[in-house]
């Protein structure tokens, strides 16, 4: 009889390409849920998505009301373009998140690291945006597309967010 081989865990590979507060949540929610179910998970942070793991910026992600008809309180673009409106919308959204007992982005990142979720920082974005590895939070791997695709090729699910 063959020895039982350990079952290979499922895996999810995510690309986080956007750096607004609302777009930072979905990849972190999916990755932490996957890890909660015993899956391997990895997120490739690229272009504005890199802000999610940027030491100074990840605590200050915002959501702009300008050109965003989905805001629950409808804000006309003309008003949304005024100074302070993004700060107001951001503070509103943070209020909903807190009321719903949802972790903040820094808290989600801590959870992700504790669960061994792989956090890839796109090296091209670093170069293009003039960001150094020291500008990023601890525990991320600098990688190019090949390294991420290598991880994603063995994944059951790949999503671009």
């Amino acid at each position: 009889m063959e020895a039982a081989t350990p079952k290979k865990p499922r895996r999810i590979a995510l690309v986080a390409s956007k750096g607004t507060l609302d777009q930072a949540y979905p990849p972190l929610i999916l990755a932490t849920t996957a890890a909660s179910m015993g899956w391997e998970a990895g997120i490739f942070f690229t272009f504005y998505g890199l802000d999610i793991i940027h030491k100074k910026k990840h605590t200050k992600l915002g959501v702009p009301p300008l050109g965003n008809p989905a805001m629950p309180v409808s804000i006309p673009n003309l008003i949304g373009a005024l100074p302070g409106m993004t700060a107001m919308a951001t503070s509103m959204m943070k209020g909903w998140m807190e009321k719903a007992k949802l972790p903040t982005i820094p808290e989600f990142l801590d959870m992700a690291k504790e669960m061994d979720i792989k956090l890839f920082a796109c090296s091209t974005t670093l170069g293009v945006m003039g960001i150094t590895p020291d500008d990023l939070i601890e525990g991320v791997d600098i990688a190019g597309a090949a390294a991420f695709l290598d991880f994603a090729a063995d994944s059951n699910i790949q999503l671009f967010i």
Partner: peptide
């Protein structure tokens, strides 16, 4: 109680 996805699943796994 009062939490939303992914917290109940995350907390259950912990």
């Amino acid at each position: 109680i009062g939490m939303f996805c992914p917290m109940p699943i995350y907390k259950a796994s912990m």
